[in-house]
Design a protein around this nucleic acid. Structure first.
Lengths: 186, 186
DNA sequence: AATGAGATTGACTATTTAGTCATTTGCACT
DNA sequence: AGTGCAAATGACTAAATAGTCAATCTCATT
């Protein structure tokens, strides 16, 4: 693993545990096993580091979200696939998931970074739009719907993270998905 | 308003805007219009300040949540009352609501404080339990259910905060509550 | 008017931290 | 072995900040 990656990995863990401002760059480089100066070779400053981290995580997540989506035929099964992918990714990358929860609204993440991150969700937004048009799900505006979906999705994800054994429990996955589905279906 | 209150009010605004570590105590006292030393007369240190703030907000919220609850007769109407109270409080105390969202999991809030805050939700938890026992809502464990309810509640609240004119729109309140209700009802 | 106890002040200190930069190291190619 | 260049180093600096404390102020009581 090259030093840049080591720095990103250490920063992810430490930012999660202590927060952005409570993590000295010296601690990041120590954890990464590199010199303090090395961090500033790869990143202009501490803020650029966390912004790169944010986009890296977001890319990893969005890649996963659409995995196997094309195989699903109905709107419900597509949504369930996304649901499973989101939870699966969060279980495989818990540090990254928690990082998002902590920093998705933090001021150290720049507006540019946040916009770049959001654009990656476009195809999922389109799917939701179609569901509304076809009257499969309730007719409310897209902003409300995506807000709500993320809320339910994250609540479920937290629960799966606290009870990882449920990840293999098909029955509970269906049960929990139905909390989401029943909420929005027409 | 006495100086202690002024300090708490300034801290609330500044912590929200800049975060805990990015808000110098000097800035808090300046905003509050008192000397830097005064903060440390009323609070042992910066951490005690934020913990007091947390509990103060939580008390204000829980007082509001059960307002008028005894007048409601059905389980659904009780839950809707709590829903309206929560959103109403958040609109009246947006700074306090956002403070919670930012700091509910932050490490600067001590374990003792967090436990003290949680205990205030006991009566609402009991209501949920009854709803499950009476098979009015789905039978899942209480931790899952409360997790999910908070997720939906907060998602809705954010939307109302972004669109404050909806607060008086009975139809939209009912519509949005139904996203919650349809999710959990049996 | 005098008293004094508690509230308030703000200059000050000891510590921490982001970022710099002159120097050293590792390595690919002669 | 020699050369040159990018990568890496870590001692150092300038700035920021939590908390202290001796001095000052306020005001109820006599």
């Amino acid at each position: 693993m090259d030093k840049r990656e080591k720095i990103l990995k250490a920063a992810l863990q430490l930012f999660n545990q202590y927060g952005f401002d409570n993590t000295p760059t010296a601690r990041i480089t120590k954890e990464a096993g590199v010199a303090t100066g090395t961090l500033f070779n790869y990143f202009k400053n501490k803020e650029e580091l966390i912004n790169v981290l944010y986009l890296t995580c977001k890319e990893s997540l969005t890649r996963r979200l659409s995995a196997g989506l094309e195989q699903e035929t109905t709107f419900r099964s597509k949504l369930k696939r996304i649901y499973i992918n989101y939870i699966g990714w969060s279980l495989d990358h818990t540090d990254e998931f928690l990082f998002f929860q902590q920093f998705c609204n933090a001021s150290c993440i720049g507006e540019t970074t946040r916009k770049a991150g959001l654009s990656k969700f476009n195809n999922i937004m389109e799917l939701i739009s179609e569901g509304i048009e076809q009257e499969i799900i309730k007719n409310v505006n897209l902003e409300y719907m995506s807000n709500l979906l993320m809320g339910i999705l994250n609540a479920n994800t937290y629960y799966f993270i606290d009870h990882p054994s449920l990840a293999g429990d098909e029955v509970f996955i269906e049960t929990s998905f139905n909390f989401l589905w029943d909420s929005i279906k027409n």
